[in-house]
Amino acid sequence: MKALIKKDKLQHYLATLKFALYCITHPLDGFWDLTHEKRGSYAAANTILIITLIMRLVKLRYTSFIIQAVYWEEINMVLYMASVLFPLALFVIGNWALTTLFDGKGRLGQVYMATCYCFTPYPLLQLPLTIMSNFVTVDEAEFYSVISGLSLVWCAILIIAAMGQIHEYSAGKNILFMVASLFAMLVMVFILMLFFSMISQGIAYFISLGRELLFRL
């Protein structure tokens, strides 16, 4: 019985993962079904996100120097990963916080899941591109940059389509709220910076207070 459930779960996971391929080619249909028909899963979303992160590292390491020369001395792995995760977190929270006030039907988890599903074209296109980059000359590098740009554009279109579907927005409202989400991200960055600078000043105050005390005693 236990084994059966496990097998069932695995099959569900694989099915939801495979559904990503349907989503990227049929975004409107796919992202509707993703939440409304429960054809997506958090496990699959996390998998896609992790694959995307790994792909970023693979791309960094194995792309030919003709296309991308890496100054290894200044690469920070954690920051490099954060360059994907941080905007993702900002977008998901910002988008949900806004849309939930304006009739958005998507929940926080659903926004996260859909956004992760939208990353699918990135590893799919970048892996063959990275391999290809090692077999091109400078003149042929144009192809690389075009396809590479295409993978990002594809992701962006998917995100826009996905948000429209899970919030059940019309096209115009959807675009409006995408732009609004970007502003929300900026506002959040601003508040975070403010927060950190206040905190650090607060801590510095207590440290200097402590020092003063130590001198006096």
Binding site: I66, F135, T137, V138, D139
Partner: peptide, 18 residues
């Protein structure tokens, strides 16, 4: 060429090698 990031010359050599 790869050691010193000379993409132009690398491409010339690679074209022939390919």
């Amino acid at each position: 060429f790869e050691l010193k990031y000379d993409a132009e010359n690398y491409s010339k050599a690679f074209k022939q090698y390919r």
